[in-house]
């Protein structure tokens, strides 16, 4: 895998306040990389530095191994914080400016406006757009150069549920094209649905990073329910891998010592004469992991 972005010991200080503290990260091609953290954890500051609007106090970063990254930066599509455009100009005119900056042919403008469903309003002034439309125009600008990398900072901020759904579907469709996406959000469910990798920041420090798949692996726990839970309790402890049992709002949360399949449990309980009305495998969510790490 080739490395798209490498961050080495990046630090940003605002006076005596350290917003990002000695951060090192590596993002590989094809990753959908989620940067998580509570408000003020340094997510936007980190993205601001790698997009050259903030000067690092210490450390360095490189896009595709080029620490200057001047030409590579034009290939990156980005949304940082709120959508920003020239208010008096139309969406189309604004994208003309972006296309000139990125060195992209004007014919791409219609294409991206169609993709984000803004083609009907392309000649309306940016100031007349709703927040959802502004956010979609920002995504259109980010997609203009058909970038290999997308950097999205809180892309669903301020959107209504329908807007969030549309934006998420757009991002997922882009990710399916094999593009590298770096996305910061505090909506963990969203990150869990979209990302392949994650990093958790707090007070500007990297607390944990890894593959989402590793978090979502089984905890060897199942939630069981039947028409006779007392009998279920007495029989389940005869299972060779049984470890512990606890009540969970009228249902039974069973932990096993080894990896057990749901079908095996169902078969075992059936052999004991118990019919299960519920059999759910419990997995750790990103939210569980996040809250546990943040609490430390």
């Amino acid at each position: 895998m080739s490395i798209v972005l490498e961050i080495k010991n990046l630090t940003k200080k605002f006076g005596s306040f350290t917003a990002v503290n000695n951060l090192s990260l590596t993002i590989e091609k094809g990753n959908v990389f989620g940067i998580l953290g509570p408000n003020g954890s340094g997510k936007t500051t980190t993205l601001g530095m790698v997009l050259d609007v903030l000067n690092p106090s210490e450390g360095s970063y490189s896009w595709y191994g080029d620490s200057q990254g001047t030409n590579n930066r034009k290939k990156i599509g980005s949304i940082l914080e709120h959508p920003i455009f020239y208010p008096e100009l139309s969406g189309y005119k604004n994208l003309e400016i972006t296309s000139l900056i990125k060195g992209v042919d004007k014919s791409r403008i219609e294409e991206v406006l169609t993709r984000v469903d803004l083609i009907q309003r392309k000649y309306s002034p940016f100031s007349s757009y709703s927040l959802g439309m502004k956010q979609r125009l920002a995504l259109a600008a980010a997609l203009l150069s058909n970038p290999e990398v997308l950097v999205l900072d809180e892309p669903t901020n301020g959107l209504d549920p329908e807007g969030i759904r549309q934006m998420r579907e757009l991002i997922i469709s882009i990710a399916k094209e094999g593009k590298t996406i770096i996305i910061s959000s505090h909506i963990l469910d969203e990150i869990q649905k979209m990302c392949s990798h994650y990093a958790i920041l707090k007070h500007g420090k990297l607390l944990k990073q890894g593959a989402i798949g590793d978090i979502l692996s089984s905890k060897n726990q199942f939630l069981l329910d039947s028409n006779n839970n007392e009998e279920l309790k007495s029989k389940i402890n005869q299972h060779p891998s049984f470890s512990t049992l606890e009540d969970n709002e009228g249902k039974l949360k069973i932990t096993f010592n080894d990896k057990v399949k749901g079908s095996d449990i169902n078969e075992f309980m059936h052999s004991q004469g118990i019919l299960l009305s519920e059999l759910t495998e419990l997995k750790t969510s990103l939210e569980d992991e996040f809250l546990e790490i943040i609490k430390k």
Partner: peptide, 15 residues
């Protein structure tokens, strides 16, 4: 004022 300078740089224009 409109922060478009920031957007131009984010879009890939060098300083």
């Amino acid at each position: 004022n409109f922060r478009t300078v920031r957007q131009n740089i984010i879009d890939g224009q060098t300083r």
